[in-house]
Amino acid sequence: MAHTGSATVTRIVELELIRLRPQAGGRGADGPVLVRVADDEGVSGWGELPHATRARWDALTSAFAPALLHHSWRRPTEAGEAWADLPWDPAVAGALDTACWDLWSRQRSTPLSHALGGERTALTAGVTLTRQVSVESVVTEVNRQVGAGFRRIRLEVEPGWDADVVRAVQTSFPFLVLQVDAGGRYTESPADLDALRAMDGLGLLAIEDPFAPDDLAAHGRLAAELRTPVALGRSLESVEDLTEAIREKSGDAVNVDPVRLGGLTAARRAVDRAVDAGWQVWCGSSAVTGIGRAATVALASLTGAALPVEMPGAGNRGRDLVLPPVRAHDGVVPVPLTESGLGHGVDRSAVAERTALALVVDADGTRELLRGRERRR
């Protein structure tokens, strides 16, 4: 193909601020920004910025996107050089980085999973359950997800809501794989440590983020004591953070999230770094649309990302904005191999219905486009 081996010059970056809830107004942090990058032949790639704070919107439109437009690259791993000197925001950088990977894959008519080096064709899916009103409601919701085929359940826990909840689920589903997400809500107080030790005896897949994200030392002390793997996620905003955590022996497993790490380039390096250190890996995502989730599926096709990939659960009514939707079927997520790039087409009509604001950024400046009623006429 003509693109093979040649440099890519991004001609257009289109940004669309999405309102997933129709009643939301203004330019606030309610919805994601869909990022489309296009080359001079009209080939496009897509990425997602999940939560569009005003600061991130401004950084994307006034700094990161213009920098990319004035930078040429041969491989998507080189695209990040465009914003290397800008104030670091992994979510903003990650949206553009992922879009460049999608563009590069489409230019070469290859699936994104293959471009990243992935080999797996189907992935076991896991789902996270948020805090429920009662233990009984947790068991009921777990039953719903198990009935939909999910084979791994991740329970959100906190002091006073942990070991007893896990035991109740295990009593009803003794063969279900469970892990817990502590969200940094524990300390090294005697009571909290006793609670974490109690969960250590329950055969969990992992205890994720027990302590504050910046306290790698506390994670390391706990990891040295427990048999259950201590997993990190929120502590990591770069591959360098992961390298430090490995050096400090702060855990045994990692949740690799392209949004938190700065895109697929960094996330792929993180998977390799973790596997080399003997850590277990799964791919989660802060993404809220199918664009971000499709990128996570492609990443999770890497051989080293062996633990179940995070997916929306049964009953999740969120809009994918892609066709076909990125979902698990009987607990399994297929890796798209018959289409290039993300393997999912953007549902342009669904996007148009939910776009509150769109900007097209090119090398000559920025032009605002109207959406809503004006745009659909």
Score class of each variant (00 low, 15 high):
108 R>P: 01
140 T>D: 14
62 S>T: 15
90 P>L: 05
55 A>H: 10
151 R>L: 12
50 P>V: 04
62 S>C: 13
137 S>T: 15
74 R>M: 15
109 S>M: 12
148 A>W: 06
158 E>V: 07
146 V>D: 02
65 A>R: 00
74 R>V: 11
122 A>Y: 07
77 T>H: 13
93 A>K: 03
63 A>E: 13
64 F>G: 00
42 G>K: 09
129 L>P: 07
94 G>C: 03
45 G>M: 00
120 R>I: 03
137 S>Y: 12
138 V>A: 07
74 R>Y: 14
107 Q>R: 15
142 V>K: 01
96 L>S: 03
157 V>I: 10
123 L>E: 01
112 L>K: 02
117 G>R: 07
154 R>S: 10
69 L>D: 08
122 A>E: 14
146 V>P: 03
55 A>G: 11
78 E>Q: 15
44 S>R: 05
145 Q>L: 09
133 V>Q: 13
142 V>G: 01
75 R>A: 15
90 P>Y: 00
60 L>T: 06
92 V>F: 00
137 S>A: 12
71 H>D: 10
150 F>N: 09
137 S>Q: 12
63 A>L: 11
61 T>Y: 13
156 E>F: 14
130 T>E: 11
123 L>A: 01
134 S>E: 10
106 R>C: 03
58 D>K: 12
91 A>I: 04
66 P>D: 06
153 I>N: 05
110 T>N: 05
69 L>Q: 06
122 A>P: 08
77 T>Q: 13
59 A>W: 02
138 V>T: 11
63 A>Q: 11
44 S>V: 04
135 V>T: 14
90 P>M: 05
141 E>D: 15
106 R>I: 02
138 V>Y: 06
60 L>C: 02
79 A>Q: 07
146 V>A: 04
70 H>E: 12
112 L>H: 01
132 Q>I: 13
76 P>D: 06
64 F>R: 02
66 P>E: 07
81 E>R: 14
149 G>Y: 07
142 V>W: 01
56 R>N: 09
129 L>I: 14
60 L>G: 06
52 A>P: 08
118 G>I: 00
155 L>N: 05
70 H>W: 13
114 H>V: 05
46 W>A: 00
119 E>T: 15
156 E>W: 12
145 Q>W: 06
96 L>M: 09
143 N>F: 08
87 P>Q: 04
127 V>F: 04
142 V>Y: 01
81 E>L: 14
66 P>H: 02
159 P>Y: 08
108 R>S: 04
48 E>A: 06
102 D>L: 02
152 R>M: 09
139 V>L: 06
55 A>L: 12
118 G>K: 00
157 V>S: 06
82 A>F: 04
93 A>C: 10
89 D>M: 05
44 S>W: 02
83 W>G: 03
114 H>R: 12
154 R>H: 13
57 W>S: 13
104 W>Q: 09
42 G>Q: 11
136 E>V: 10
58 D>I: 12
113 S>F: 01
100 C>Q: 04
137 S>L: 10
47 G>F: 00
94 G>Y: 02
139 V>A: 07
139 V>Q: 09
157 V>R: 02
80 G>F: 06
89 D>K: 01
106 R>K: 13
124 T>C: 11
111 P>K: 05
112 L>D: 00
94 G>W: 00
83 W>E: 04
53 T>H: 08
130 T>Q: 14
85 D>K: 12
111 P>Q: 01
99 A>R: 03
67 A>V: 05
92 V>S: 00
102 D>K: 01
46 W>G: 00
89 D>N: 07
